[in-house]
């Protein structure tokens, strides 16, 4: 059976059947590495992030990179046309990706992207929200929970203040944004299950 990689972090979902599993994995890794590096560069710019221990910086990034990428690449999911743009620039319809083996994760990603984009956040708001997504004290393996929690609270306060200032008549936006955090966790868990299944195969 022909294998496809339906994650848009690939250049294309099509896999060269001549390539070994290792080569396919290497190519996939090569595709998403620049995006992961950008997440690390973003994290470094969050005031206070570099003051956390090295262990906690790595733990937060390991646990949260997928969620940050989902937020950053929400625009790859065109809800109106029901298409996904891969990193190679080509668009694929949901039906095509479904036929290639895409799971319910794809529909969940569409739902999330639609709701997030509909909030109409500015670049600054989206950036601060992304920082809140990354700095979560309840990630596994955090050594100094108090430090991460303190930074998380500072970022949440800053986000609330920015949203209140920019949208004085839309107080629900901040609540809606906080409710996106469990949605992202759920997507992260679904994605981890997919990765597990992929590795087992």
């Amino acid at each position: 059976k022909r294998m496809h990689l339906v994650c848009p972090m690939n250049t294309s979902p099509h896999v060269d059947p001549q390539k070994s599993g290792h080569e396919v994995w290497e190519e996939f890794s090569h595709s998403f590495t620049p995006a992961v590096r950008e997440v690390v560069e973003f994290a470094k710019k969050i005031p206070g992030f570099r003051d956390l221990s090295q262990h906690d910086q790595v733990s937060l990034l390991k646990a949260g990179t997928f969620e940050v990428l989902v937020v950053r690449f929400a625009s790859l999911f065109d809800v109106k046309d029901r298409t996904v743009t891969f990193l190679g620039g080509k668009k694929y319809s949901v039906d095509t990706l479904r036929a290639m083996g895409a799971s319910d994760l794809l529909n969940s990603m569409f739902d999330f992207s639609e709701k997030l984009i509909n909030l109409g956040l500015s670049e600054e708001e989206m950036s601060l929200f992304t920082a809140v997504v990354l700095v979560s004290a309840d990630r596994s393996g955090i050594e100094n929970v108090n430090s991460v929690e303190a930074l998380q609270e500072t970022l949440i306060r800053a986000l609330r203040s920015l949203i209140t200032k920019n949208h004085p008549n839309e107080s629900a936006i901040f609540t809606k944004l906080l409710l996106k955090l469990p949605d992202l966790r759920s997507l992260n868990n679904m994605h981890s299950e997919q990765l597990l299944a992929f590795k087992v195969h």
């Binding site: 890794s29 470094k44 790595v58 590795k199």
Partner: peptide, 27 residues
């Protein structure tokens, strides 16, 4: 298998990307 980030090689990429910054701090 319980750590998808490590399986993806993500931890290695993250550590390398953080490294320059962390070395600066140690100096």
């Amino acid at each position: 298998f319980n750590d998808p980030a490590s399986n993806l090689g993500l931890e290695d990429i993250i550590r390398k990307a953080l490294m320059g910054n962390l070395e600066e701090r140690q100096e």
